[in-house]
Design a protein around this nucleic acid. Structure first.
Lengths: 171, 171
DNA sequence: TAACTCATGTAACTTGTTACATGATTCA
DNA sequence: TGAATCATGTAACAAGTTACATGAGTTA
C-alpha cells in the first residue's frame, strides 16, 4: 500500500511517466520506499485499468512512447482514502514505511490531527502490550526490547508531527 | 527469512509440533514476528523436504497425529548461516524484525561481535546517506526525518547489544 | 564500437494471505 | 447440544522478485 501511495502521490504532484518514476524511486527514495520496476509497471497498469490514473502518450525520438500518467478524480478519492488508512494503521511487524507523511497536505489539517491521534493511541497500546512480562519470552527479552525501542521512536515521532500540525492550525 | 529463523530457532530450542508453534506465534510473539498458519505449514513442509528438520508422529486421542519436529545437523548449519546473514543485513525499508537477537547464543560471542559491528557500520552508512540534503526531497522531509529516527534507534540498539556481548566476553 | 541510458515491458518463480475443509475432544 | 479447542491441512488468489527481451539514442 505504501507503494501505491508513493506512486499515486507522485503522479498527483506532477504528471510523470513510469521510467522517470522508477528512476526517482531507485535513486532518491530508495531509503524510504522499496519498489522495483516490474512492480511499478504492474501497479501502474492496475491503477490505469481501475481508473485511478490515465495516461497520454508522448513520443521522443524513436523510443517507445512515454506514458505520461495523471491522476483522475476517482484516483484522487482513492488516494485520500488510502492516506487516511495508512495514517490510521500501525502494524507491529515490518513497521510501515512512512511515505504517507509526504502527503499530509492532501487532507484537511483537522482530519490529519484526528487520524494521527488515533495512530498515536494505537502505538501506545502496542507499547503497553510489549511491557507485559511473560514467561514465554525467555530468551526473547532482547527482541522485545528492540521492538519496544522502535515503538517508542514511532510514538515520539507521531507526537511531534501532531504538534506540528497543531501549530499550523493555530496560526 | 525472519519467519524461518523463528521457526527453526524454536524447533532448535525444543522439539515442538506445528499447532503449538503457530499458537505461540499468534499469542505470545505476534508483536515481534508475523507468521500465519498456512505459511508456517508450508515452511515446515519445505524445511522437512530440504532436510533441515524432521518429525516423528505422536498420537493423542483420535486427533490427527502431531508432527513433532526436531532440527537435523544440516538444519543446524543452515540456521547458523541464516543467523549470520540476518545479523549482517539491515534493509532500509521494512526494517528487519529482530528475531535474530533471540538466538545469539548459537554462535561464538567473538563472531557475534564481528557481525554486529559490521551491521552497525552499515546502519551508520545508511544514516549518513539520509543526511545528504537533496532537491528531490521537497515535500518528503518528514518522511526522511522519520526514517532517520528509526535508523538512529536501530543504531543505538545495535551498539547496546555490542556492549553487552563485549561485557560477556570480558568476564 | 562498445557501453550506457532511455523507455517499454514479459515470464517464471517465490512468498504470503484469506477463506475453506475435516473431524475428534472438551467444557459450559 | 453447541461452541471452543486440538490438529492437520488445501485452494485460490495477491503481491513481489529476478532475470530476460527489445530496440533506439548517446557518449567515450
Amino acid at each position: 500500500m505504501e507503494k501505491i501511495l508513493f506512486l499515486l502521490g507522485l503522479i498527483r504532484n506532477a504528471d510523470i511517466h513510469a521510467y522517470h518514476l522508477i528512476a526517482l524511486a531507485e535513486s532518491h527514495f530508495n531509503l524510504v520506499v522499496s519498489i522495483t520496476k516490474p512492480t511499478a509497471y504492474r501497479l501502474l497498469d492496475k491503477m490505469t485499468s481501475d481508473g485511478w490514473i490515465r495516461y497520454r502518450e508522448e513520443q521522443v525520438g524513436n523510443h517507445p512512447p512515454r506514458k505520461i500518467y495523471s491522476i483522475t478524480p476517482a484516483g484522487e478519492e482513492i488516494f485520500c482514502d488510502l492516506l487516511r488508512q495508512s495514517l490510521t494503521e500501525y502494524s507491529p511487524t515490518g513497521y510501515s514505511s512512512p511515505v504517507n507523511l509526504a502527503f499530509l497536505s492532501a487532507l484537511p489539517a483537522e482530519e490529519v490531527l484526528l487520524l494521527l491521534e488515533g495512530r498515536r493511541d494505537r502505538v501506545q497500546t502496542l507499547l503497553q502490550k510489549l511491557n507485559v512480562s511473560d514467561e514465554y519470552r525467555h530468551g526473547f527479552q532482547r527482541v522485545f526490547q528492540h521492538q519496544r525501542r522502535h515503538f517508542e521512536a514511532e510514538l515520539s515521532l507521531t507526537e511531534e508531527v501532531i504538534a506540528q500540525v497543531q501549530a499550523s492550525l493555530s496560526l
